[in-house]
């Protein structure tokens, strides 16, 4: 069974970078897929990867990570201006971040307009547990 946990941005807004990473990683380590409203800062994203690597063991294999964000590269100058303006007002609240434990999420494929989440085949693991 897949469990998704939605984390509204206000739940991480006042946390330190370490606090944000800890909170999101702890949820993923409970074998839940995190749906975070908005996104982490770029330096927090790389720190999340670093912290994940520090915690990898035989039970926790890491994460799959994807950030969907209205890109500034597409469309014309007015779209860019609009995105910049919304950025200024909303900060990192825009977009959606998906963090899935690698034991459950096999891959997240995306292009700028859509996202596809592929889950692991759990039969083998379920059989082992019996």
């Amino acid at each position: 069974m897949l469990t998704l946990e939605f984390v509204p941005y206000h739940e991480i807004a006042n946390l330190s970078s370490i606090g944000r990473i800890r909170k999101l990683l702890n949820i993923a380590k409970q074998n839940k897929i995190v749906l975070l409203e908005g996104r982490l800062k770029k330096e927090e994203e790389i720190e999340l990867i670093k912290t994940t690597m520090e915690e990898i063991n035989e039970d926790f294999k890491g994460i799959e990570l994807a950030v969907i964000y209205p890109t500034k590269n597409d469309s014309g100058i007015f779209t860019k201006m609009k995105t910049n303006f919304v950025d200024m007002i909303a900060g990192n609240r825009l977009g959606l971040t998906i963090i899935g434990p690698a034991s459950i999420v096999k891959a997240i494929k995306k292009d700028p307009t859509k996202i596809q989440l592929y889950t692991q085949e759990l039969k083998k693991k379920a059989r082992k547990k019996k």
């Binding site: 770029k42 330096e43 990867i49 990570l65 950030v67 494929k109």
Partner: peptide, 17 residues
């Protein structure tokens, strides 16, 4: 491979920052 993978975006985003 897909260039839009999050690892690529995170590396390049950090270099840009």
């Amino acid at each position: 491979k897909d260039p839009f993978s999050q690892v690529n975006l995170t590396i390049i985003g950090n270099l840009a920052a």
